[in-house]
Design a protein around this nucleic acid. Sequence first.
RNA 1: GGUGAUGUAGCUCAGCUGGUUAGAGCACAGGAUUCAUAAUCCUGGGGUCGAGGGUUCAAGUCCCUCUUUCACCA
Length: 691
Amino acid sequence: MATANTPRKILVTSALPYANGSIHLGHLVEYIQTDIWVRYQKMQGNIVHYVCADDTHGTPIMLRAEKEGITPEALIDGVHKEHLADFSEFLVAFDNYHSTNAPENKELSESIYKKLKANGKIATKTIEQFYDPVKNMFLPDRFIKGECPKCHAKDQYGDSCEVCGATYNPTELINAYSAVSGAAPIRKETEHYFFKLSECEQFLKDWTRSGTLQGEAANKMGEWFENGLNDWDISRDAPYFGFEIPDAPGKYFYVWLDAPIGYMASFKNLCQAKGLDFDEYWSNDSKTELYHFIGKDILYFHALFWPATLEFSGHRKPTQIFAHGFLTVNGEKMSKSRGTFITARSYLDHVKNPEYLRYYYAAKINSTMEDIDLSLDDFVARVNSDLVGKYINIASRTAGFINKRFDGKLAPSVNNVVVNEIKLSAQTIAENYEIREYGKALREIMRLADAANGFVAEKAPWVIAKQAGQDAVLQQVCSDALEMFRLLTLYLKPVLPKLAENIEKFLNIASLSWNSVDSSLVQDHTINAYEHLITRIDPKLIETMTEANKENLQATAAPQAHSEQHHAAHQQNEANAEIAEAEYISIDDFTKVDLRIAKIVSAEHVEGAEKLLKLTLDIGEDKPRQVFAGIKSAYDPATLIGRLTVMVANLAPRKMKFGLSEGMVLAASDEQGGPFILSPDAGATLGMRVK
RNA sequence: GGUGAUGUAGCUCAGCUGGUUAGAGCACAGGAUUCAUAAUCCUGGGGUCGAGGGUUCAAGUCCCUCUUUCACCA
């Protein structure tokens, strides 16, 4: 723990989001995780700079701008504004949010490259690559498509097959074509620049095993050393949106070279604004601390290329890399068809309060690379129960007495067993924040909130309030409870900064920092009137949000070209899942549908309905089902009675204008004609399962 | 295909170096209470710890095989 007299100097980064898409709930895991840590460190009195930037270079940005008929600069400008607005509304408090397409980054990238070159770490090599003869550009693997050489699935990407999972070289694809122009790519030689990573092996072996990585991350890195490190291709040919390599016309830095340098550039930009000393944080002998929060998908960029780049260009290396897992929603990958691919903006539009999500994520976040699950039902239950029912309730149930009976004035001093217990946990909670075990910290805080509520229940101030001459006791009990509430607010402040601010106003106290644990609500202190500080989440909001995020897959049949770079990996992988999902369902998905042979017991017209017939269907249950079917145009009710057909028996009953519909009858139709209802072959009897 | 992770009550998760009847919150059931945003307090039911082998006096915890889910493969 930091001691009060020597504040630590810490530079913190989150991974740079790619300027090719919107921020979604998956991204936010990382920014919220980092922001909590930064806020905690600042509360401890440490000097912390939290910087980030948009990652703006590469082929996907170039092509998208072209498609939209604007310059890449205009594209990334718009995205920058959007990203920054999303982050600020989620209370992610960057000290600087910059761009990789900035003068500081150009200058730093060039100078680092020159130092690497001077240190003999740059080589050139002629390689053969696929080239789009129509578009006149070299194609990254992800922009070449064709038939999988193993399973012969069509339209697979140049590096791996989404259907059978095989990985291969783009040269192995059958009938390859360019995803950009559709033309058959030709092979063409080109000179590329390489960073001689192979010469950095010993340095990296030591570095990755020196406590800079989580255990499982270090294990993962181990596999790279088993086969020996290859040199890293750091150049791309024009046309490319990025920085041109000095003395190499037509050659550009690969986006992954200048992206992490973007951390430095953003900080340099901050230094200029605030008069900070850049070298104090980045020189080889820096005494400051540097931490990168990243997703597990981009571990090797940060644990291999990046430290090697820093080492051989004469800079300090990261103190530690903190990799986290991915987000699943309701236990599965985020999905557009299920409406769980939720953007930051959509959450803000529907649920509004960002602190609910911050709290829920914090309750799940730990120091490992395990994935975390956003279970939407659990989200509602947990936030309502923990934040409203337990925590806020402490103030809500005691402040009234203080305001009404004592004009807001608290007891002269505060001291009891539970307050002391809560104070004693400060160290444990701080340690858990420090090591990014937020879930553990919050569990402890909620345990203390339970203790506070137990204290109030035991003292029963509502009973004391009715006893004559017990005013001082009543005042004491409620003051004690509010002191507990103050301490819990302090502990929760890194997670819930806005709520904490409102509570500071309510309690009429100065901004809480970690050493506020040692003080307490003092003599003759007067609080303000209590107003509701937070409202419960209405589960309907969640439903509306997922409905609003559901996308019709047919409407988006043409998937976007995949990114060659991995900042956008979250989106990439979700998009992949989407493709597979559109083409196949699992047998489990199918068996969820309970199809039954049904006998049409009666059929009649529905007064006032243009398309509907009211059917009564017998599937062998006690009572026949009432179903409204849109088949009036094709069938005379009289001819239907007595027929067997197929119905979906476990469709959720739906209230319609004309009554309750308890199932669905299957029928075929298209523009040519229909609907045509189905009939089973002779032998099928009512109630039989169709499978 | 290879590699690293992962699978514990209905749900979300704790379980450190193997050691008494496997824990918490939510949900559920019963009781108490009414200060509080139907919040709170007490009590209770509920798990063959992914599957199968093995090591050990003793395994959720170690080893092997299989399997689920996630990620990475320059």
